[in-house]
Simulated scan of single mutants.
Amino acid sequence: MELHQLRCFIVVAQELHFGHAAQQMNMLPSALGRYIKLLEEELGTRLLSRSTRNVSLTPHGKIFLEEAQRIVTLSDELLERFQNISRINAGRLRIGAIDSAAVGLIPHILHIFCDNNPGIEIQIMEDKTTKLLPRLKSGRLDLIFIRPMEQMDESLETYFLFYEDIVLAVADTHKLATLKEIHIDNLLDVPLIVPERKIRPHSHDLTLKLFEHTTFKPRLIQMADEKQTIINMVAADLGAAIMPRWVSRMSIPHVKFIPLAKEYENIRKKLPIAAVWIKDSRDEARDKMLVILKNELAKIAEAY
């Protein structure tokens, strides 16, 4: 049963004349008659009594007319509601981003976007992946840049961007500060500051993954969840921290950032960044932003 069938039946029920109803629907009377017949066959009951001169509603037809009108009215109201939302959002783009994306990716594409679309208002929210996903699904954000989960919601469209490089942050007085690159054996008995897993699962698992094939366990200390706080802890020589390379741009004195040895490049896959939006949704401003993102992606990825 389709909405178009319901609309056809409602017009026939109101006109009680197939010819007049067909004119309103811009259809041939024979085609309109087939729609009504198929509807009756699907319902398993007669809705209209037909004679050579008259068309009238059966008792079931009268009941069905009320329900059909209610359904069509609700459908029209729903359509109008979301068309209004679309018109309101046409001049606005609400973006959510994790800290990694907010530092380099967002400013890069935003500069180009604003030059090309000066009339569109931009709203940006920085938060964790676990906070941004519900806001996207509830319609409070239009586009988010996050760490994608292994299994993403089927209602979402996910566009992978890149993996981030990884460094070890240590105090400049630390015994490891003179090294050119870090091997996991260098971290024996080195306290590592990690965020709580339920707060930052990717960052927490990143550190553990490095020790997957070692003969010793890492010394983990959970002192802070925010990167700024973690770096300050490192500066105070309370421990080292495995972090995304972009953190090295933060102006923090007394901290040295050392790259991991090439043999650990696969660990980068623990720090993916993806663009995510609602699947099959229409948003002109968002789509313009995505075009810019795809065009600039190679340049952006080099900074990470």
Rank of each mutant, 00 (worst) to 15 (best):
A171P: 00
D280H: 08
K288W: 08
L39N: 06
S56T: 15
R135W: 07
T130P: 00
A298G: 09
H174T: 07
R245C: 13
I252T: 15
E121A: 10
D237I: 02
I106P: 01
A274W: 04
A285R: 01
G44C: 14
A274G: 09
L39V: 09
V12H: 03
E284P: 08
A236N: 01
I273Y: 05
L260V: 06
A303H: 13
I71L: 13
S75M: 08
D205C: 13
R268V: 04
L32S: 07
Y159F: 13
S251Y: 12
E212W: 09
Q23I: 06
E154A: 01
K256C: 14
S203Q: 11
I10L: 12
I85S: 03
T45W: 02
S203I: 09
F9S: 09
T229A: 14
A102L: 05
T214V: 10
T178D: 11
L16E: 14
L48Y: 01
A177H: 13
V234P: 03
Q83E: 15
S51Y: 11
L293D: 01
L168M: 10
Q123V: 14
I71A: 05
M27D: 00
N84W: 09
V11I: 02
M149H: 11
I144S: 08
M243L: 15
T52P: 00
H183Y: 10
A68R: 00
S248R: 12
E40K: 14
R249C: 10
A298M: 12
A22E: 08
Y35L: 06
I88N: 01
L110N: 03
L141A: 06
K217H: 13
Q222E: 15
I112S: 04
L176V: 02
L136E: 11
F211I: 10
E121D: 13
K270G: 10
P29N: 12
L238P: 00
D280M: 05
P107C: 03
F162C: 15
I120M: 11
L93M: 05
L187S: 03
V167S: 06
R197H: 09
H213K: 08
D142P: 03
K256M: 15
L192R: 06
H111G: 04
L136H: 11
T129A: 12
M289G: 03
Q83A: 13
H204K: 13
P134N: 13
H60C: 08
T229H: 14
M125D: 09
N26K: 15
S203T: 11
G91I: 00
L179I: 02
E164V: 08
H20V: 09
L93Y: 04
C8M: 00
A236C: 06
A90W: 06
W277E: 00
S281W: 03
I112T: 06
S51I: 15
A285L: 03
P118Y: 12
A13D: 06
L16H: 05
A235P: 00
E302T: 14
L210Y: 15
E2I: 14
E126C: 15
R94D: 04
V11R: 01
I193N: 03
I230K: 11
A169N: 12
Q23V: 08
K288M: 12
G44P: 10
L176W: 00
I112A: 06
D76Y: 07
E196F: 10
P272D: 06
F145C: 03
A102R: 07
I122Q: 07
A31E: 10
L132G: 04
L260P: 03
L297T: 11
R245T: 10
L78F: 14
G44M: 14
L136C: 11
A97W: 05
I109A: 06
F216K: 02
E265P: 01
P253Q: 14
A101D: 10
L208W: 00
